[in-house]
Protein backbone atom coordinates (compact mmCIF):
# COMPACT_ATOMS: atom_id res chain seq x y z
CA UNK A 1 0.00 0.00 0.00
CA UNK A 2 2.71 2.45 1.03
CA UNK A 3 4.61 1.35 -2.02
CA UNK A 4 1.73 2.13 -4.35
CA UNK A 5 1.01 5.52 -2.78
CA UNK A 6 4.63 6.57 -2.81
CA UNK A 7 5.30 5.43 -6.34
CA UNK A 8 2.06 6.91 -7.63
CA UNK A 9 2.85 10.22 -5.97
CA UNK A 10 6.29 10.27 -7.52
CA UNK A 11 5.05 9.25 -10.96
CA UNK A 12 2.24 11.78 -10.65
CA UNK A 13 4.60 14.64 -9.88
CA UNK A 14 6.90 13.65 -12.73
CA UNK A 15 4.01 13.44 -15.16
CA UNK A 16 2.55 16.69 -13.87
CA UNK A 17 5.82 18.46 -14.49
CA UNK A 18 6.00 17.05 -18.00
CA UNK A 19 2.53 18.49 -18.55
CA UNK A 20 3.58 21.86 -17.20
CA UNK A 21 6.64 21.83 -19.39
CA UNK A 22 4.42 21.31 -22.43
CA UNK A 23 1.76 23.75 -21.27
CA UNK A 24 4.01 26.60 -20.14
CA UNK A 25 4.18 28.10 -23.62
CA UNK A 26 0.44 27.81 -24.04
CA UNK A 27 -0.04 29.52 -20.70
CA UNK A 28 1.83 32.49 -22.04
CA UNK A 29 -0.02 32.57 -25.38
CA UNK A 30 -3.54 31.42 -24.51
CA UNK A 31 -3.76 32.37 -20.88
CA UNK A 32 -2.12 35.78 -21.16
CA UNK A 33 -2.72 36.87 -24.74
CA UNK A 34 -6.06 35.10 -25.04
CA UNK A 35 -5.16 33.51 -28.37
CA UNK A 36 -6.72 30.06 -28.88
CA UNK A 37 -3.49 28.70 -30.28
CA UNK A 38 -4.20 25.30 -31.79
CA UNK A 39 -0.75 25.30 -33.35
CA UNK A 40 0.91 25.10 -29.95
CA UNK A 41 1.44 21.37 -30.29
CA UNK A 42 2.92 22.02 -33.72
CA UNK A 43 5.54 24.35 -32.28
CA UNK A 44 6.22 21.66 -29.71
CA UNK A 45 6.70 19.15 -32.54
CA UNK A 46 8.95 21.53 -34.45
CA UNK A 47 11.03 21.88 -31.30
CA UNK A 48 11.43 18.12 -31.12
CA UNK A 49 12.44 17.77 -34.78
CA UNK A 50 14.78 20.77 -34.74
CA UNK A 51 16.31 19.39 -31.55
CA UNK A 52 16.69 16.00 -33.21
CA UNK A 53 18.32 17.44 -36.31
CA UNK A 54 20.72 19.63 -34.36
CA UNK A 55 21.55 16.84 -31.92
CA UNK A 56 22.80 14.70 -34.80
CA UNK A 57 25.53 17.20 -35.55
CA UNK A 58 26.16 19.17 -32.39
CA UNK A 59 24.69 17.07 -29.64
CA UNK A 60 21.60 17.29 -27.46
CA UNK A 61 22.62 20.37 -25.49
CA UNK A 62 23.20 22.50 -28.54
CA UNK A 63 19.73 21.45 -29.68
CA UNK A 64 18.24 22.46 -26.35
CA UNK A 65 19.55 25.97 -26.85
CA UNK A 66 19.21 26.44 -30.60
CA UNK A 67 15.89 24.75 -31.34
CA UNK A 68 13.82 26.96 -29.00
CA UNK A 69 15.52 30.06 -30.38
CA UNK A 70 14.71 29.00 -33.94
CA UNK A 71 11.11 28.11 -33.14
CA UNK A 72 10.72 31.26 -31.05
CA UNK A 73 11.93 33.28 -34.03
CA UNK A 74 9.48 31.47 -36.25
CA UNK A 75 6.76 32.27 -33.72
CA UNK A 76 7.48 35.99 -33.91
CA UNK A 77 7.32 35.82 -37.70
CA UNK A 78 3.98 34.02 -37.53
CA UNK A 79 2.66 36.64 -35.16
CA UNK A 80 3.96 39.58 -37.14
CA UNK A 81 2.80 38.51 -40.59
CA UNK A 82 -0.15 36.29 -39.78
CA UNK A 83 -1.84 36.47 -36.43
CA UNK A 84 -1.64 40.23 -36.15
CA UNK A 85 -3.71 40.63 -39.32
CA UNK A 86 -6.21 38.11 -38.07
CA UNK A 87 -6.42 39.35 -34.51
CA UNK A 88 -9.02 42.04 -35.17
CA UNK A 89 -11.45 39.49 -36.64
CA UNK A 90 -11.84 37.80 -33.29
CA UNK A 91 -11.11 34.53 -31.60
CA UNK A 92 -12.59 32.23 -34.18
CA UNK A 93 -10.41 33.73 -36.88
CA UNK A 94 -7.32 33.26 -34.71
CA UNK A 95 -8.37 29.75 -33.95
CA UNK A 96 -8.78 28.90 -37.63
CA UNK A 97 -5.52 30.54 -38.52
CA UNK A 98 -3.64 28.40 -36.01
CA UNK A 99 -5.68 25.40 -37.13
CA UNK A 100 -4.48 25.92 -40.70
CA UNK A 101 -0.97 26.49 -39.47
CA UNK A 102 -1.05 23.15 -37.65
CA UNK A 103 -1.96 21.39 -40.92
CA UNK A 104 0.82 23.16 -42.78
CA UNK A 105 3.48 22.44 -40.16
CA UNK A 106 2.53 18.78 -39.96
CA UNK A 107 2.84 18.31 -43.70
CA UNK A 108 6.11 20.22 -43.89
CA UNK A 109 7.55 18.05 -41.13
CA UNK A 110 6.39 14.96 -43.04
CA UNK A 111 8.11 16.20 -46.16
CA UNK A 112 11.39 16.83 -44.43
CA UNK A 113 11.60 14.02 -41.87
CA UNK A 114 9.21 11.45 -43.29
CA UNK A 115 6.25 9.82 -41.62
CA UNK A 116 8.08 7.27 -39.49
CA UNK A 117 9.41 7.97 -35.99
CA UNK A 118 12.97 9.28 -35.90
CA UNK A 119 15.58 7.91 -33.54
CA UNK A 120 15.88 10.86 -31.14
CA UNK A 121 17.79 9.67 -28.11
CA UNK A 122 18.35 10.72 -24.55
CA UNK A 123 21.86 12.24 -24.29
CA UNK A 124 24.43 9.77 -22.87
CA UNK A 125 25.22 12.18 -20.04
CA UNK A 126 21.66 11.73 -18.72
CA UNK A 127 21.13 8.12 -19.73
CA UNK A 128 21.41 6.38 -16.37
CA UNK A 129 19.04 5.56 -13.52
CA UNK A 130 19.09 8.45 -11.05
CA UNK A 131 17.64 6.47 -8.15
CA UNK A 132 15.73 3.29 -7.41
CA UNK A 133 12.65 2.95 -5.25
CA UNK A 134 10.97 -0.42 -4.65
CA UNK A 135 13.14 -1.90 -7.39
CA UNK A 136 11.77 0.62 -9.93
CA UNK A 137 14.31 2.82 -11.64
CA UNK A 138 13.87 6.54 -12.18
CA UNK A 139 16.00 7.70 -15.08
CA UNK A 140 18.09 10.83 -14.70
CA UNK A 141 16.40 12.29 -17.77
CA UNK A 142 13.07 12.42 -15.95
CA UNK A 143 14.67 14.29 -13.08
CA UNK A 144 16.11 16.69 -15.62
CA UNK A 145 12.60 17.11 -17.07
CA UNK A 146 11.28 17.96 -13.62
CA UNK A 147 14.04 20.46 -12.88
CA UNK A 148 13.58 22.20 -16.23
CA UNK A 149 9.85 22.55 -15.62
CA UNK A 150 10.46 24.10 -12.22
CA UNK A 151 13.14 26.39 -13.59
CA UNK A 152 10.83 27.62 -16.35
CA UNK A 153 8.06 28.20 -13.85
CA UNK A 154 10.33 30.18 -11.56
CA UNK A 155 11.81 32.21 -14.38
CA UNK A 156 8.42 33.08 -15.89
CA UNK A 157 7.03 34.02 -12.51
CA UNK A 158 10.02 36.21 -11.84
CA UNK A 159 9.78 37.96 -15.18
CA UNK A 160 6.05 38.56 -15.01
CA UNK A 161 5.83 39.65 -11.39
CA UNK A 162 9.13 41.25 -10.64
CA UNK A 163 10.49 42.94 -13.73
CA UNK A 164 9.59 46.06 -15.65
CA UNK A 165 9.14 44.05 -18.81
CA UNK A 166 6.66 41.80 -17.06
CA UNK A 167 4.77 44.80 -15.79
CA UNK A 168 4.45 46.30 -19.24
CA UNK A 169 3.38 42.95 -20.68
CA UNK A 170 0.67 42.57 -18.08
CA UNK A 171 -0.54 46.09 -18.64
CA UNK A 172 -0.47 45.66 -22.41
CA UNK A 173 -2.66 42.59 -22.18
CA UNK A 174 -5.45 44.27 -20.24
CA UNK A 175 -5.16 47.85 -21.52
CA UNK A 176 -3.31 47.82 -24.81
CA UNK A 177 -4.44 51.30 -25.84
CA UNK A 178 -3.31 52.89 -22.63
CA UNK A 179 0.08 51.23 -22.77
CA UNK A 180 0.38 52.36 -26.36
CA UNK A 181 -0.32 55.93 -25.34
CA UNK A 182 2.42 55.70 -22.76
CA UNK A 183 4.84 55.19 -25.57
CA UNK A 184 5.34 51.44 -25.54
CA UNK A 185 5.17 49.47 -28.74
CA UNK A 186 2.26 47.16 -27.95
CA UNK A 187 2.55 45.30 -31.24
CA UNK A 188 6.13 44.44 -30.50
CA UNK A 189 5.24 43.27 -27.00
CA UNK A 190 2.62 40.90 -28.39
CA UNK A 191 5.08 39.64 -30.96
CA UNK A 192 7.67 38.93 -28.29
CA UNK A 193 5.19 37.24 -26.00
CA UNK A 194 4.09 34.97 -28.81
CA UNK A 195 7.69 34.23 -29.69
CA UNK A 196 8.47 33.32 -26.09
CA UNK A 197 5.41 31.07 -25.97
CA UNK A 198 6.46 29.27 -29.14
CA UNK A 199 10.02 28.99 -27.85
CA UNK A 200 8.81 27.42 -24.60
CA UNK A 201 6.78 24.92 -26.60
CA UNK A 202 9.99 24.04 -28.43
CA UNK A 203 11.87 23.56 -25.14
CA UNK A 204 9.19 21.05 -24.19
CA UNK A 205 9.61 19.40 -27.59
CA UNK A 206 13.37 19.08 -27.31
CA UNK A 207 13.02 17.46 -23.89
CA UNK A 208 9.91 15.36 -24.48
CA UNK A 209 11.08 14.23 -27.93
CA UNK A 210 13.60 11.64 -26.72
CA UNK A 211 11.41 10.60 -23.79
CA UNK A 212 8.32 10.05 -25.96
CA UNK A 213 8.07 9.32 -29.68
CA UNK A 214 9.31 11.91 -32.16
CA UNK A 215 7.07 11.47 -35.17
CA UNK A 216 5.18 13.70 -37.59
CA UNK A 217 1.86 12.94 -35.92
CA UNK A 218 3.04 13.75 -32.39
CA UNK A 219 1.32 17.13 -32.43
CA UNK A 220 -2.03 15.64 -33.30
CA UNK A 221 -1.68 12.86 -30.76
CA UNK A 222 -1.11 15.30 -27.91
CA UNK A 223 -4.75 16.36 -28.24
CA UNK A 224 -6.38 19.13 -26.27
CA UNK A 225 -4.98 18.11 -22.87
CA UNK A 226 -2.84 21.26 -22.61
CA UNK A 227 -5.90 23.48 -22.95
CA UNK A 228 -7.35 21.56 -20.03
CA UNK A 229 -4.28 22.37 -17.94
CA UNK A 230 -4.46 26.07 -18.70
CA UNK A 231 -8.21 26.42 -18.20
CA UNK A 232 -8.33 24.35 -15.02
CA UNK A 233 -5.48 26.44 -13.66
CA UNK A 234 -7.32 29.60 -14.52
CA UNK A 235 -6.81 32.01 -17.39
CA UNK A 236 -4.05 34.50 -16.80
CA UNK A 237 -2.48 32.57 -13.96
CA UNK A 238 0.92 31.00 -14.20
CA UNK A 239 0.75 29.51 -10.71
CA UNK A 240 -2.67 28.15 -11.53
CA UNK A 241 -1.31 26.29 -14.55
CA UNK A 242 1.51 24.90 -12.44
CA UNK A 243 -0.92 23.72 -9.79
CA UNK A 244 -3.31 22.29 -12.39
CA UNK A 245 -0.49 20.31 -14.02
CA UNK A 246 0.41 18.77 -10.68
CA UNK A 247 -3.21 18.07 -9.87
CA UNK A 248 -3.93 16.42 -13.21
CA UNK A 249 -0.70 14.42 -13.05
CA UNK A 250 -1.54 13.12 -9.59
CA UNK A 251 -5.22 12.45 -10.27
CA UNK A 252 -4.44 10.50 -13.40
CA UNK A 253 -1.62 8.48 -11.86
CA UNK A 254 -3.54 7.55 -8.73
CA UNK A 255 -6.54 6.64 -10.86
CA UNK A 256 -4.40 4.24 -12.90
CA UNK A 257 -3.34 2.52 -9.71
CA UNK A 258 -6.94 1.85 -8.71
CA UNK A 259 -8.88 -1.16 -9.92
CA UNK A 260 -12.14 -0.09 -8.32
CA UNK A 261 -15.32 -0.41 -10.35
CA UNK A 262 -19.05 -0.44 -9.69
CA UNK A 263 -18.96 -4.20 -10.03
CA UNK A 264 -16.24 -4.31 -7.40
CA UNK A 265 -18.20 -2.10 -5.04
CA UNK A 266 -21.70 -3.56 -5.44
CA UNK A 267 -21.07 -7.03 -6.81
CA UNK A 268 -21.86 -8.39 -10.24
CA UNK A 269 -24.93 -7.33 -12.12
CA UNK A 270 -28.12 -9.25 -11.60
CA UNK A 271 -29.07 -10.62 -15.04
CA UNK A 272 -31.79 -8.36 -16.36
CA UNK A 273 -32.46 -9.24 -19.96
CA UNK A 274 -31.26 -7.23 -22.94
CA UNK A 275 -30.25 -4.23 -20.86
CA UNK A 276 -27.57 -6.20 -19.10
CA UNK A 277 -24.97 -5.94 -21.83
CA UNK A 278 -25.39 -2.17 -22.08
CA UNK A 279 -25.33 -1.51 -18.34
CA UNK A 280 -22.52 -4.03 -17.94
CA UNK A 281 -20.23 -1.79 -19.99
CA UNK A 282 -20.58 0.92 -17.37
CA UNK A 283 -20.76 -1.46 -14.45
CA UNK A 284 -17.45 -3.15 -15.11
CA UNK A 285 -15.38 -0.11 -16.04
CA UNK A 286 -12.50 0.38 -13.62
CA UNK A 287 -11.23 3.73 -12.46
CA UNK A 288 -7.92 2.88 -14.12
CA UNK A 289 -9.65 2.49 -17.46
CA UNK A 290 -11.07 5.99 -17.40
CA UNK A 291 -8.02 7.66 -15.82
CA UNK A 292 -6.96 9.63 -18.91
CA UNK A 293 -10.49 10.96 -19.35
CA UNK A 294 -10.65 12.31 -15.80
CA UNK A 295 -8.90 15.60 -16.66
CA UNK A 296 -11.77 16.42 -19.03
CA UNK A 297 -14.30 15.68 -16.34
CA UNK A 298 -12.31 17.93 -14.05
CA UNK A 299 -12.41 20.62 -16.71
CA UNK A 300 -16.18 20.50 -17.05
CA UNK A 301 -16.75 20.47 -13.31
CA UNK A 302 -14.33 23.31 -12.64
CA UNK A 303 -15.87 25.49 -15.31
CA UNK A 304 -19.36 24.90 -13.98
CA UNK A 305 -18.62 25.48 -10.33
CA UNK A 306 -15.62 27.76 -10.46
CA UNK A 307 -15.42 29.34 -13.91
CA UNK A 308 -12.30 31.31 -13.06
CA UNK A 309 -10.37 28.09 -12.65
CA UNK A 310 -8.18 27.30 -9.68
CA UNK A 311 -6.34 30.59 -9.52
CA UNK A 312 -7.58 32.55 -12.52
CA UNK A 313 -8.08 36.27 -12.62
CA UNK A 314 -10.81 36.41 -15.25
CA UNK A 315 -13.46 34.25 -16.86
CA UNK A 316 -12.55 34.76 -20.48
Amino acid sequence: MVEIVLISALDGVLYGMLLFLMASGLTVIFSMMGVLNFAHASFYMLGAFFGFQISRYLGFWAGLVAAPLLVGGLGTVVERYGLRKVHRHGHVAELLFTFGLAFVIEDLVEMVWGKLPVDYRVPPSLDFPAFTIFSGNYPAFKVFELLTAIAIFAALLLVVKRTRVGLIVQAALSHPDMVGMLGHNVDRIFMLVFGVGAGLAAVAGVIAGPALVTQSNMAGLLGPILFVVVVVGGLGSLSGAFLASLLIGLVQTFAVASNASLAGAFGDLVPSGWLQAYVGDIWNVTVAQVAPILPYLLLVLILIFRPRGLMGTRES
Binding site: D11, L14, V256, A257, Q289, P292
Partner: peptide, 21 residues
Protein backbone atom coordinates in the same frame (compact mmCIF):
# COMPACT_ATOMS: atom_id res chain seq x y z
CA UNK B 1 -5.94 -7.48 -17.20
CA UNK B 2 -5.51 -3.80 -17.87
CA UNK B 3 -7.18 -1.56 -20.45
CA UNK B 4 -6.14 1.98 -21.20
CA UNK B 5 -7.73 4.49 -23.60
CA UNK B 6 -6.54 4.45 -27.18
CA UNK B 7 -3.66 6.86 -27.95
CA UNK B 8 -4.35 9.13 -24.97
CA UNK B 9 -1.48 8.19 -22.66
CA UNK B 10 1.77 10.13 -22.70
CA UNK B 11 3.23 8.60 -19.56
CA UNK B 12 3.05 4.85 -19.07
CA UNK B 13 5.08 4.77 -15.84
CA UNK B 14 2.04 4.18 -13.61
CA UNK B 15 1.13 1.17 -15.73
CA UNK B 16 4.68 -0.12 -15.56
CA UNK B 17 4.61 0.31 -11.78
CA UNK B 18 1.43 -1.76 -11.71
CA UNK B 19 2.98 -4.50 -13.81
CA UNK B 20 5.97 -4.61 -11.51
CA UNK B 21 3.81 -4.71 -8.40
Amino acid sequence: NEFHPLVKITDFSPYVAKIRA
